[in-house]
Computed example of a mutant assay.
Amino acid sequence: MNRRDALARVAIIMGGTVIGADYFLTSCSSPAKDKENATTATKQAPAKEEVFLTPDQVNFLDEVGETILPATKTPGAKAAHVGQFMAVMVRDCYEPKDQKVFLQGITQLDADAKKKTGKSFLESSPAERTTFLTALDKEQQAYSATQPKDAPNHYFRMMKQLTLLGYFTSEVGATQALRYLPVPGRYDGCVPYKKGDKAWATT
């Protein structure tokens, strides 16, 4: 599955545009990354790469992703390392304003979980996590539907989009959750489909 097809599928699932899509399609050359590269290029020795998210934050995002796409008969989002995927994509592909919202969202999500359940997100049971994120998803959908043009994006919309994009473009997502044919053969314009068949990762 190429990058453009993956973004189109995520947009269909989410019912709207994918945040950062313009930069995903141009090799993730965001204004923040361009500025960083320009600064680094003027130095004689490259600086040590700054850690955008801590290991604990990456682990937290893995758990959020796993709640969105849990393991069933196929591996879940954690097996695809979506937390690390989010860290790279937000750092390299999001505009500074969206990076700020995303980072604040990690703290906000955990704080809201404590208000709802009396426990942190990681301390909550799988059922409690699912109930909480389902309500949060409804909140972001309502917000996004009436979002003014210049208003910040909802942090959970970013997390959900990146979970879907990271999972279905990963090896486990493409080869186990979807049907994958490394070297496609002839073109078949009409393939029989029966209910329950996996979608194709390759076309």
Rank of each mutant, 00 (worst) to 15 (best):
Ala145Asp: 15
Asn153Cys: 01
Lys138Phe: 03
Thr131Val: 11
Gln141Ile: 08
Ala135Asn: 08
Ser124Lys: 07
Ala135Lys: 11
Gln140Arg: 13
Ser120Met: 03
Thr131Tyr: 02
Gln141Thr: 10
Glu128Ser: 09
Thr130Ile: 00
Gln141Arg: 14
Asn153His: 13
Ser124Pro: 04
Leu136Tyr: 04
Ser124Ala: 15
Lys138Ala: 15
Glu123His: 07
Asp137Val: 01
Ser144Thr: 15
His154Glu: 07
Asp150Val: 02
Ala135His: 03
His154Gln: 07
Pro152Trp: 04
Lys119Asp: 11
Asp137Gly: 05
Gly118Asp: 09
Gly118Arg: 08
Leu136Cys: 01
Glu139Arg: 12
Ala151Asn: 07
Gln141Pro: 00
Phe132Asn: 03
Gly118Asn: 07
Ala142Tyr: 03
Thr146Met: 08
Glu123Cys: 00
Phe121Thr: 09
Thr146Val: 13
Ser144Val: 12
Glu123Trp: 00
Gln147Trp: 01
Ala151Arg: 06
Ala142Asn: 11
Gln147Asn: 15
Lys138Asn: 14
Pro126Asn: 12
Gln147Met: 14
Ser120Arg: 10
Thr130Ala: 11
Glu128Val: 04
Tyr143Gly: 05
Leu136Val: 12
Ala135Ile: 02
Gln140Met: 15
Thr131His: 04
Leu122Ser: 12
Ala151Trp: 08
Phe121Asn: 08
Thr131Met: 08
Gln140Asn: 08
Gln147Ser: 12
Lys119Asn: 14
Glu139Phe: 00
Thr146Pro: 00
Leu133Val: 04
Gly118Met: 08
Ala127Ser: 13
Ala142Glu: 15
Lys149Asn: 11
Ser125Val: 06
Phe121Lys: 06
Thr134Pro: 00
Leu133Ile: 02
Thr131Leu: 10
Ser124Gln: 13
Arg129Asp: 05
Ala151Phe: 07
Thr130Glu: 14
Ser125Gln: 07
Lys149Gln: 15
Ser124Leu: 07
Ser144Tyr: 08
Ser144Trp: 05
Leu133Gly: 02
Lys138Pro: 00
Gly118Ala: 07
His154Met: 02
Arg129Lys: 15
Gln147Thr: 09
Glu139Gln: 14
Pro152Lys: 02
Ser120Val: 02
Arg129Glu: 06
Glu123Ser: 14
Pro126Arg: 09
Ser120His: 09
Asp137Ala: 12
Phe121Pro: 07
Lys138Ser: 12
Ala127His: 05
Leu136Ala: 10
Asp150Lys: 10
Ala145Phe: 07
Lys138Leu: 11
Thr131Arg: 10
Tyr143Met: 06
Pro152Gly: 05
Ser144Gly: 01
Thr131Ser: 12
Ser125Thr: 15
Lys149Val: 14
Glu123Met: 10
Phe132Ile: 03
Leu136Glu: 15
Thr130Cys: 00
Glu128Asn: 06
Ala127Leu: 11
Ala135Asp: 13
Ser144His: 09
Gln140Pro: 00
Lys119His: 13
Leu133Tyr: 05
Gln141Phe: 07
Ala151Gln: 08
Lys138Met: 10
Ala145Arg: 13
Leu133Glu: 06
His154Phe: 09
Glu128Gly: 04
Glu123Phe: 01
Phe121Trp: 09
Asn153Gly: 04
Ala142Phe: 01
Leu122Pro: 01
Glu139Cys: 00
